[in-house]
């Protein structure tokens, strides 16, 4: 794992589950993994809507938002959250999807604007690298 510059502000991540699905083991484990990698995790927990997630991303000035899905609804719900962020002028905030996502859906999710996908069995190193990766890519894209 790369060590960030000492003194640099921590990455701020909003973590949520979108919809009704209550499987939050993965979300909680990821929250701890990101905390232990020095990030600040704004934990929204269960049963969030695109509205509550957008509010949180905006008010918390999040660098990235992570959505956990175990309900086989990711192909419907992931584009909805990407669009909701864009509508709110937050289209530059990358979305990472985690949970039960088959490999064959990866292209469709990427095309829908999802920044990264963490499938079943992703290691802590992969989780952290993926979140940092989409944040750093966003920084480069904005030209700073």
């Amino acid at each position: 794992m790369e060590v960030r510059n000492k003194g640099a502000a921590p990455i701020r991540v909003v973590l949520a589950k979108l919809g009704l699905d209550g499987h939050d083991r993965g979300l909680k484990v990821v929250a701890r993994i990101l905390r232990d990698a020095g990030m600040e995790v704004v934990y929204l927990g269960l049963r969030q809507t695109t509205g509550t997630i957008v509010d949180a991303v905006e008010q918390e000035d999040a660098d990235v938002v992570g959505i956990s899905m175990h309900n086989a609804g990711h192909l419907t719900l992931a584009p909805l959250i990407v669009a909701a962020l864009a509508d709110a002028g937050l289209g530059d905030v990358p979305v990472v999807i985690g949970g039960v996502v088959p490999d064959e859906d990866l292209d469709e999710l990427a095309a829908a604007g999802v920044g990264a996908v963490l499938g079943p069995g992703a290691s802590a190193v992969e989780v952290v690298a993926s979140v940092r990766g989409v944040v750093d890519a966003g920084v480069r894209a904005s030209g700073n």
């Binding site: 905390r35 232990d36 600040e40 704004v42 934990y43």
Partner: peptide, 13 residues
């Protein structure tokens, strides 16, 4: 966290 500098901010729940 005093160890890692990270935090879990759960108040919005």
């Amino acid at each position: 966290s005093p160890l890692t500098g990270g935090a879990i901010l759960g108040d919005r729940v």
